[in-house]
Nucleic acid binder design. Structure first.
Lengths: 220, 220
DNA sequence: GATTGTATTTTGAATAGTCAAATTGTTTTC
DNA sequence: GAAAACAATTTGACTATTCAAAATACAATC
């Protein structure tokens, strides 16, 4: 019943509602799914007719409990597949996202359970994104970003939001992977720049926009 | 360009043309794909328009070189995935076929190459079906079946054609897997029955119809 | 050679998903 | 509070795939 298009819409609504709390706008949804806005409206109405979302005309969409269940399932499949591709097949963590994007619609629960066991029931994927449990629980801990954290404190990168290949390759080239230790050395708001130092001693500069995609926690 | 429906049609035409040499009839194709005959006709015309098959009106279809290339790619993906599911994920070889049926359309060449390497470049899948090479070469060695082989000679099962769960579970329950050693002890053509003895000493009876799906070679 | 049976093809309609373009609502801004 | 700007919705059309049912071709039988 849930085609892969439907799964994509639901997953995307879930992801967008994480930051832009509550209602997701049609424009944002359409952009994320790379369709024209009218298409998103049409599809959202169909989803609403099937009880998967609540459509508040002209204000946005929201997942129903049923829709959320589906979306969390897709997200779990996506993130476990990414973990498999990196941990077992040794693929580059910067390029597994599009692969998982297609496989997530084709893998069955039976296969997924085996994969989960093989990987040792991981809590997060290679980007640090939390993996929903089989029961649909998703760790929603809130982290500071490099753009909002306290200067000078020793930090640990926990997660890179933003899955684009370019961004991830930039991160990889500068050694900004999950679990890397860093310290923000300064911010220049007017210039939109931020400087930081890695535990290796290496210093580097990045834009605040990019820094906002890097979640950090205090290095314990 | 090649949707998963197109891939399914091409793969099925390849499989059917292996036994029913040359032209594949619409009826056979429609049955294999579980669609009504009119649907197969319509689709085959579309494939012909794209240069993937030759349609000999009222006589049957045949793959073109381009169609064969696509079909062999699908078959390679299917069989490598089955091998992975059994060898790495330790799934039951009698139930991996439908899983592979869906994954074969979603896996990329990059992932497939890694899988191939991880599995040690296998030549056949868990059912003994030969895996096409990356270059599209498919081992087409002809084997006798249990229904046509010489009585009393020591044999080795090389392959089970027929992917249905019931048949495979029957085979598994009676220990008739690829590489099992057996000897045909007798045939009763009028009754359509065949008796054989396994290397373990166990004797068993099966229908000639079932026996025709079990390919064998002389046990060296 | 007319009749019957079977396989194939054609036709018309349905569904899922999409876009382009026109329309309608809702906010800003002056 | 009218005009401009922007976001959301509606409409009509298109593609891919399917089915049901009618039409056609071919082969087999009497």
């Amino acid at each position: 019943m849930a085609t892969s298009t439907v799964e994509d819409y639901l997953k995307q609504i879930l992801l967008l509602s994480e930051d832009a709390d509550e209602l997701v706008s049609m424009g944002a949804l359409a952009t994320a799914l790379e369709v024209v806005p009218g298409t998103a409206t049409t599809m959202v109405k169909a989803l609403a007719a099937n009880g998967l979302v609540d459509h508040h005309l002209r204000h946005g969409v929201q997942l129903t409990a049923a829709g959320q269940r589906v979306a969390l399932g897709v997200l779990r499949r996506h993130r476990l597949i990414e973990t498999f591709l990196v941990d077992v097949l040794k693929m580059d963590w910067t390029e597994v996202h599009p692969e998982a994007e297609r496989l997530e619609h084709a893998i069955s629960d039976a296969v997924l359970d085996r994969l989960d066991a093989l990987l040792g029931y991981p809590a997060a994927d290679p980007h640090g994104d939390p993996i929903p449990t089989r029961q649909g629980k998703l760790d929603s801990q809130v982290y500071a970003t490099l753009a909002t954290c306290i200067v000078a404190k020793p930090l640990r990168i926990v997660r890179l939001t933003e899955q684009s290949g370019e961004f991830l390759q930039f991160a990889e080239q500068n050694g900004l992977r999950p679990d890397t230790r860093v310290r923000v050395t300064g911010r220049n708001l007017p210039a939109g720049l931020l400087t930081l130092k890695k535990s290796s001693g290496r210093a580097l500069t990045l834009s605040l926009a990019a820094a906002g995609n890097i979640l950090v926690a205090p290095a314990k």
